[in-house]
Simulated scan of single mutants.
Amino acid sequence: MAKPVLFVLNGPNLELLGEREPEIYGSTTLADVEAMCRAEADSAGFELRFHQTNAEHEMIGWLHEARKGAAGIVINPAAFSYAGYPIFDALKMCACPIVEVHISNIHRRDEAWRAHSLMTAAATGMITGLGVHGYALAIRHLAQLAG
């Protein structure tokens, strides 16, 4: 029997985790985040599709793959949060639960525009400000929903 599939999707600049603004995002790399997500997914009995892109069309392609049949989506849209209307539309087409994750607390950032993610209206829930641990919490939540 095939394992249910979870998608963990990461937006622009997240390939620079561990280097980019460590005072905000910490020193954990995206490879570390992927390893943590794989461990969580494995222990919950999920297959994991983990991706990062700086290109909107790639993100939309992965969302189209997940649209039917995925057990859930964890998405850190990063800067797509603020101008990614095509990604928002693709998220709305997904039948599975969606958890939006942000490493920093977007509501406490200096730039007021960061507090208004377009994606939130398409998400089942949001985790913000809990660092990279938000990814593991999102996977645990999706596993509980799949229960």
Score class of each variant (00 low, 15 high):
Ala70Arg: 05
Met59Val: 07
Ala121Phe: 09
Met93Lys: 15
Ala41Glu: 03
Ile103Trp: 00
Asn76Lys: 12
Asp89Pro: 04
His51Tyr: 11
Val8Ser: 13
Val5Thr: 10
Val132Trp: 02
Tyr135Asp: 03
Arg114Asn: 06
Gly26Met: 02
Arg108Ala: 12
Leu17Trp: 01
Met93Arg: 15
Asn76Pro: 10
Glu58Ala: 08
Ala83Pro: 00
Leu91Asp: 10
Ile106Met: 05
Leu118Pro: 03
Leu137Cys: 08
His133Trp: 00
Ala41Gln: 05
Gly147Tyr: 01
Cys94Thr: 12
Gly134Glu: 01
Pro77Asn: 15
His116Gly: 12
Leu63Trp: 04
Ala146Pro: 00
Gly125Asp: 06
Glu34Gly: 02
Ala35Arg: 15
Glu19Gly: 02
Ser104Gly: 09
Ala39Arg: 10
Pro22Thr: 15
Gly72Ile: 07
Ala39Glu: 14
Thr29Asp: 06
Arg114Leu: 08
His107Phe: 13
Ala2Leu: 12
Asn76Arg: 14
Ile75Val: 13
Val5Lys: 09
Ala121His: 07
Phe7Gln: 00
Met1Gly: 14
Leu9Ser: 10
Asn105Gly: 05
Pro77His: 11
Ile87Phe: 00
Gly69Asp: 05
Leu130Thr: 07
Ser104Met: 06
His107Met: 11
Ala44Phe: 01
Val132Leu: 00
Asp32Thr: 09
Phe50His: 06
Arg108Leu: 14
Pro4Trp: 12
Ala83Thr: 12
Phe50Leu: 09
Ala136Gly: 08
Thr124Gly: 07
Ile106Pro: 00
Ala143Cys: 05
His102Ala: 07
Gly45Thr: 13
Gln144His: 09
Leu16Asn: 12
Cys37Trp: 04
Lys68Ile: 15
Ala39Asn: 05
Gly131Ser: 01
Glu47Met: 13
Gly18Lys: 05
Ile75Phe: 11
Gly129Glu: 01
His107Lys: 12
Glu58Ile: 09
Ser27Ile: 09
Asn13Phe: 10
Ala39Ile: 09
Ile24Ala: 07
Pro4Thr: 15
Glu65Lys: 11
Cys94Ile: 14
Cys37Ser: 14
Cys96Tyr: 08
Val99Lys: 00
Val8Ile: 06
Ile87Gly: 00
Gly11His: 03
Pro22Ala: 14
Ser27Cys: 08
Asn76Met: 11
Gly131Thr: 01
Gly26Val: 02
Ala95Cys: 10
Ala2Glu: 15
